[in-house]
Design a protein around this nucleic acid. Structure first.
Lengths: 149, 149
DNA sequence: TGACATGCATTAGAGCTCTAATTATTGTTC
DNA sequence: GAACAATAATTAGAGCTCTAATGCATGTCA
């Protein structure tokens, strides 16, 4: 099967370009793409557990664990035991985390807007719909992950 | 900016789903997705240098170095000094590498065909074209990488 | 010939990602 | 109450990825 016919190669390159662009954009904020994603979801659901955050960011718990570890070392988040549910660590942004996220967000959104400006509203919808079908199709072929969001 | 409006989140999830599907498909062949990509390009350009292979796979030379190191340890490739250009290591598939690649290729192509079957020919072209514009747009915003394929 | 640019290979270091396994807690079911 | 399932957190280990820096070889140009 010739490479240009494989949807996967195009998909991979596009994601790679996006990731590289965001990485470069977030560098001045001293954030990685993953750290930014975690902070963003965290700001929208304060006190969320690491496992739930992992689901929101579509990564596995151990992955989120390493990301959170680095964020904590940099003082951007704090993790405190849940009041009565002893097996949960509530994760929250620190003040510094709020500031850094705000800075990073303007930079990341700039990239997203630049990309969005490349397309018309109709094209954006088409692209999102097609990507959604990719995701569904690929997940359907993996029964073990059927219900994973 | 709301998350569902960000093209990036959809792009990332689609790539993640594809990568996971391929990883699972290649597991019985004892290959990672990156190793498979390297072997595939290698079979099409025998004797290519590691740097050129890195460009073909759209990764950096050190990345390709680690991939090749693992492939060599598993006896799938061999690297011999270039005849007269002493600074180049020619990389080639071993017989075992050929066999493993053939096995992995049928598995990987199965995933690609399954994904492609989700769409009509027109839809596939549309998706590839839209992804191509994503790549161009994102690379244009990174002057340092302008000419990188 | 010497200085320089180019390209290849490699190392060091940081960070992300996964699977697999372990431990602990909570809530349910018999 | 005891066994069980479900969820959360964590560790271990392998692998990929990047940037930055170094060393070496080749070819070009003054």
């Amino acid at each position: 099967m010739p490479l240009p016919e494989r949807l996967g190669s195009h998909l991979k390159r596009a994601e790679q370009a996006l990731s590289a662009a965001k990485h470069a954009a977030l560098k001045p904020a001293h954030l990685t793409v993953s750290q930014y994603a975690a902070l963003l979801h965290l700001s929208q659901s304060p006190g969320i557990s690491a496992a739930a955050l992992a689901r929101a960011c579509a990564v596995t718990p151990p992955t989120m664990n390493t990301v959170l570890k680095n964020l904590q070392e940099n003082g951007l988040i704090e993790r405190t035991p849940h009041e009565w549910h002893k097996n949960i660590l509530e994760t929250r942004l620190t003040e510094k985390g709020e500031r850094v996220l705000a800075d990073g967000d303007t930079r990341a959104v700039r990239v997203e807007r630049g990309l969005a400006a490349e397309f018309s509203a109709e094209e954006r919808e088409t692209l999102i719909a097609l990507l959604g079908r990719c995701i569904e199709s690929l997940q359907a072929s993996r029964p073990d992950r059927a219900g994973t969001p």
